[in-house]
């Protein structure tokens, strides 16, 4: 039986810029079940980031309701919002948003420090494991400026994973990365999804959307298409292919 993780009801976001109202989201209704892997696509300015920020509890909707795990988030207090961000959601940004001059390990430890339940006793051990999971066991004491873009994004992913959330939200996680590195990141996403973590990500490229299981297309703040992906790509195999191609090119 499938259980609902995300359900939005007439979710609407309007920005006021001077005298003009920008309707970034217009009554969006979507439902995402546990274990899904959703790619959100759409033209620039169609409201993808706005939707992601609302799903990630980083911003408040102008109207409408957002149910996460059965809880109506619009009824929550500020502190409960913080708890949800800390416990249930791992957010990955296009621009990484790592703390500068701070080692990968310390960056990944951060969410553990803000965990009020203190589920994890040994922060360092937990953070080390998260970094190993994204393949950065040998880069723990590097600061962001000493890491490549792909490595920084993997640190950000480790940070998103460290509190073992049930939902990973990623807004153009590979927007700043080359295609090989991007496929590596999607490979990680697929593995995490196989482990049962629900993933919602925004991407601009149809090729990358094919790594997901379902695709939602947006235009002008509305959902215009919502479909299962038929020919799903396996990132592991794609990775082998692109690496082989790169070797031939050399």
């Amino acid at each position: 039986m499938e259980t609902t993780l995300i359900k939005t009801v007439n979710l609407t976001k309007t920005y006021n810029v001077g005298e003009i109202d920008v309707h970034a989201l217009k009554s969006v209704n979507i439902t995402i079940n546990k274990g899904e892997f959703v790619a959100i696509m759409g033209a620039s300015g169609s409201g993808k980031s706005t939707l992601m920020n609302l799903l990630g509890c980083l911003d408040m909707p102008t109207s409408g309701d957002y149910f996460l795990d059965g809880i109506n988030t619009s009824k929550l207090q500020q502190n409960e919002y913080a708890n949800i961000r800390n416990q249930k959601i791992g957010f990955v940004f296009q621009g990484f948003n790592l703390l500068p001059r701070t080692t990968a390990l310390e960056n990944v430890e951060l969410p553990l420090m803000y965990d009020r339940l203190e589920k994890v006793k040994n922060h360092q051990k937990q953070a080390t494991e998260a970094l190993k999971r994204v393949g950065l066991g040998d880069r723990m004491h590097h600061i962001p400026s000493q890491l490549s873009g792909g490595q920084q994004q993997r640190v950000a992913l480790a940070r998103a994973l460290v509190n073992e959330p049930s939902l990973i939200l990623a807004d153009e996680p590979t927007g700043n990365l080359d295609s090989v590195t991007s496929v590596e990141v999607f490979n990680l996403f697929q593995k995490l999804n196989d482990e049962g973590i629900t993933i919602v990500m925004v991407t601009h490229e149809r090729d990358f959307a094919a790594f997901a299981k379902r695709i939602i297309e947006m235009r002008d703040g509305r959902v215009i298409r919502d479909a299962k992906i038929k020919d799903r790509l396996n990132a592991e195999e794609e990775l082998k292919k692109v690496i082989a191609e790169a070797e031939i090119a050399e």
């Binding site: 708890n83 416990q87 969410p111 803000y114 509190n163």
Partner: peptide, 19 residues
């Protein structure tokens, strides 16, 4: 500016305003 971004990062991963 730098600090506000830092605060944004901390808030986004679950810090409370009081933290």
């Amino acid at each position: 500016t730098e600090r506000t971004r830092e605060i944004g990062i901390r808030l986004s991963i679950g810090a409370r305003a009081s933290d």
